[in-house]
């Protein structure tokens, strides 16, 4: 079962994401702040991370940057949840290498679609690697 790490300081959002993803057949792990999220990401090496931007201790941009610049974790797709939808926020996100962005209030079905897209892509990517 694919492992998905959800990092958000809003318990309600974490719960709803977890519910939808688990009922769709994913195994979910959660963290309620950036620090725990980063630790868990390194420990679990999940297949995908859903990351909120505005969080206490370490914000989502920093976590994304730390992971994407580390060869060990850089292939983990990151889906970033932003609350502000401002162009400059997107720019910062691009620099940090997140793979997808959804703006609050997001659509759960949209998140599910993006997760599926990246996890199937990852499988393809691994296949390609094996072929090469």
């Amino acid at each position: 079962m694919k492992k998905i790490l959800i990092v958000d300081d809003e318990l309600d959002i974490v719960e709803s994401l977890k519910f939808v993803l688990e009922t769709s057949g994913y195994s979910c792990y959660t963290a309620l702040n950036g620090e725990d999220g980063l630790k868990l990401a390194k420990e679990l090496i999940p297949d995908l991370i859903i990351l909120d931007v505005m969080m206490p201790k370490i914000n989502g941009y920093k976590i994304s940057r730390l992971l994407k610049y580390d060869n060990k974790y850089k292939n983990i797709p990151i889906l970033m949840i932003t609350a502000r939808s401002q162009e400059e926020d997107k720019l910062i996100g691009e620099e940090t290498g997140a793979d997808e962005y959804v703006t609050k209030p997001f659509d759960l079905e949209e998140v599910l679609r993006l997760v599926e897209k990246h996890l199937s892509r990852e499988i393809d990517g691994n296949r390609n690697k094996q072929n090469a």
């Binding site: 809003e10 309600d12 959002i13 709803s16 994401l17 939808v20 609350a83 609050k104 209030p105 997001f106």
Partner: peptide, 11 residues
Amino acid sequence: LRTPLTSIKNS
């Protein structure tokens, strides 16, 4: 506003 709205929408 967006954060609680997201929780409501998700539910």
